[in-house]
Design a protein around this nucleic acid. Structure first.
Lengths: 164, 164
DNA sequence: GCACTTTACCTTCCATGGAAGGTTTCATGG
DNA sequence: CCATGAAACCTTCCATGGAAGGTAAAGTGC
């Protein structure tokens, strides 16, 4: 009989204290939350090795995976990274300060600006992303190939249901 | 042919831009992260209906599920909620200001303090937690009973591997 | 072509959490 | 018993993000 994980113990406590409630959703949501916190810690530690915070990594990776010529508007970046426009402004500020991106005026819209990845920014994110993916492989080592596929499929369906 | 979710599209972009990398972990980690962000938004919105922030909810729920007499030290709260001792200090400050908890000196340890749930705090968290669980049921509606069980099992194994 | 509304981006203010350090108290070895 | 180190909690400082509001430029209706 293997011992419970943290969330299993929490669920037992609630079953005792609030037997009127079916807390089974915590088996999914509680664990997802807790795993997410741990994963974030681990990923952020890897970004830090390259002098990057989570926000900066997100901006550079979003620009990079968009492909040449590596240009996106702040609004596009906000939509793709699920943060507010204000957060994008500040993230781009930090990237700009380090010389990883520049801001250029839009040619088609006088209000618009375009965020452009610099050569230095591209070289940095290419190195950091390689390490990032290796790190993600490591974090998934505890699951078999089959289990990862099952998990990805279940999460994909759920993500689609939630509209994310 | 169903269309891809957001993370599926991101993975396609990386496959094109960085064909040298196996980005399959993102199928799990990227989706988990994105679902986690959405879930947090939804849960926080529910807490707010009771005048609670995420931190306060966490503190009150942790005290409540510990059972009578609803007393824990700040260190215990920090361990159970995965935040720093400084964060616990501030969370307890806010709960105390609202009269949901009190701080009492420890009888056995002159350095120690004990955080105690008040009657008002217990009544509040009991109402809020009932709504919280209903909310979690709603957020899982898109998955079948069988899928939720599979998901919970996979996440439990992964959580144990990660030590969370 | 002028008012009005909308859009895009940025700035300011506030809330929150982590890191590091301070204070008080406890435990331990001599 | 005292000195030293450890533990518990809190406070301060800093980083970050959201919300709300400001500014500039488009779009729209007349």
């Amino acid at each position: 009989m293997k011992s419970k994980d943290h969330v299993g113990r929490v669920m037992d406590q609630w079953a005792r204290e609030r037997p009127d409630l079916d807390v089974s959703p915590q088996g999914v949501i509680g664990r997802l939350h807790r795993i997410g916190m741990r994963l974030t810690e681990e990923l952020v530690a890897e970004y830090a090795k390259f002098g990057l915070g989570e926000g900066e990594f997100d901006v550079l990776a979003t620009l990079r995976r968009g492909g040449a010529p590596y240009r996106l508007t702040p609004t596009e970046i906000a939509e793709r990274t699920m943060v507010s426009s204000g957060a994008v402004s500040k993230r781009v500020d930090r990237c700009e300060r380090h010389g990883w991106v520049t801001r250029e005026p839009s040619v088609t819209d006088g209000r618009g600006r375009v965020v452009v990845l610099t050569g230095a920014g591209k070289r940095l994110i290419d190195r950091a992303f390689t390490a990032h993916i290796a790190n993600e492989h490591r974090l998934l080592e505890g699951l078999s190939r089959r289990q990862r596929d099952d998990l990805a499929r279940l999460l994909e369906q759920w993500a689609r249901q939630l509209g994310v």
